[in-house]
Simulated scan of single mutants.
Amino acid sequence: MILRIASVLSRSGKGAEVLLDPNPFRPSGGGQPSDRGRLEAEDFEAAVVDVRLVDGLAVTELRIGRGEPREGAVLRALPDEAWRSLLTRMHSGEHILSKVLEGLREGLRITKTHIGDKESSVTIAYDGEIGWELLFEAEKRARDVIAENRTVTVHELSAEEARAFPGLKANWERIGDDVVRVVEIDGFDANACCGSHVASTAEVGDLFVTAYNGSAPDWTVTFTVEGSLRDLYGQVMRRLLRGVGCPVDRIEGVYEKLRAEKEGLARDLDRARQNLSLSWTTEECGAFRLHFVELPGWTADLVSPAVKKQVESDGRALVVVLCPGPEGRGPFVVARGSDVSFDLRAFLKGHPELGARGGGASAWVSGVATAPWPLWRRALGL
């Protein structure tokens, strides 16, 4: 398509904002991102990265590849048709899934939508519980509507005509235009919407619910219409089943059993940690009493209770625990008792040779370090 730059609104670095005449790129709206594409001329090339409505004008954001945008310049527009088609399918799929969900549970209401190129989502207000059984049923019914190849028609109506449209769902507080754009799925749904849509439901493709999260009354359900993502989920599940060594209908039970075992082990470990005693090497160092131990392969949370007990029982204690890994790098904990005036954060900051990364307070720091114990002794002035 041939067009011209009607106005250059801004120009900075590689970016620019322009008005195009005509503008073949659909602006963002209705939860759907704008079209993307390219503008080309003999001496100019730019990517269209965003289009948004500002005071009724479609402001087009460009990323300049070469040349300069000039008012009156004649260009060729190349919209990204694959991007537009995918968002169109996603948006029509959202209408179908939203209508099905609202019909499955009384009081369930879609409050917001987000259309993406890989996954899209609907935000739900619902005082009850949302779970996989509900979502599997919604997914199945949505696919049935898609398979029925229902006609999708876009009507441009006056506000009066729109209000009289049978079964129309509209957020009238957000509709300020004289013309109301109504998207009708034959015999199924009618929705006031400024997004792009397919001509028939069969074009939507493979609707697949990927996730949900939240708690009553605020929920989010994520879905896609891209079969490649379904393939990815299936491949991951088959690899998992191979590793676990069980049939697909038992994987949830295996997971729940392993989760319960993990929680039990965590409780056991926590009890053991509270009663753990470390074999300190203790040394009188004038201003403080040094307690040191090196525990290769241990973690900071495992030794922390023992460190806490040591500094609480000995006000003059300066405790250093190093847990080096296979290549020397590993967790550390350094803490001091109440009678030691030693800012441990300043100590670490002043000794970069320790290779310590972490944080904490003036009396307790932890993280990961690379230096062996002799370098720590030297840094401590021992």
Rank of each mutant, 00 (worst) to 15 (best):
S34D: 02
T153P: 00
L240D: 03
D339M: 09
P296E: 12
D189K: 01
P372K: 12
S279E: 13
I115G: 00
V48Y: 01
D35H: 05
E61M: 05
E156Y: 14
G328M: 06
F332W: 07
E61Y: 08
G72D: 13
E17A: 10
R289Q: 11
K14R: 15
V54T: 14
L318C: 07
F208A: 07
V320H: 01
F288A: 03
V221G: 00
G359C: 13
W364V: 00
F208G: 05
P305T: 09
L134I: 06
G13H: 13
A356V: 03
L134H: 13
T210I: 11
F208D: 04
D80K: 08
I110Q: 03
G358Q: 05
E312L: 12
E283Y: 15
R289L: 06
E184P: 02
T220G: 04
E71I: 03
A41W: 06
R84H: 14
Q32S: 06
P27S: 09
D343T: 05
V51M: 10
A369I: 00
L375N: 08
L295W: 06
H95W: 03
V182N: 04
Y255R: 14
G128C: 07
C285V: 05
I115K: 00
G355R: 06
A142V: 02
G15L: 07
P79G: 10
R230W: 11
L9T: 09
A190G: 06
F292N: 04
V334Y: 00
I5S: 01
D127Q: 11
E71S: 09
V311L: 09
L232W: 15
L375K: 14
E94P: 03
A363R: 05
P324F: 13
V152C: 03
R11P: 01
L207M: 01
L3T: 14
M1A: 07
A164W: 08
G243D: 15
I124S: 01
D249R: 08
G37V: 00
S304Y: 01
R239C: 05
G131Y: 07
L104I: 05
I251P: 00
V340P: 01
G253W: 06
R143Q: 15
C193F: 06
L318R: 00
E68V: 02
E256M: 12
I130W: 13
F223L: 09
K349P: 01
L157T: 10
D186A: 11
R336L: 02
P217R: 10
G325E: 12
E156F: 12
V154Y: 07
E283H: 14
S98E: 04
V320R: 00
A142G: 04
T153Y: 09
A6S: 14
L75T: 02
G245K: 13
A371T: 03
I185M: 03
A287C: 09
H155E: 12
G315V: 00
S200R: 15
L78D: 14
V221L: 06
C323R: 01
L157R: 09
S228W: 15
V59I: 10
V209Y: 11
T220R: 14
A41C: 11
G31T: 09
F188W: 08
N275F: 02
T60L: 06
V319Y: 11
P331F: 04
A266M: 11
D117M: 05
A159Y: 08
E71R: 13
E256L: 12
Y233C: 08
R378K: 15
S85M: 14
E68I: 05
S12D: 15
M1E: 07
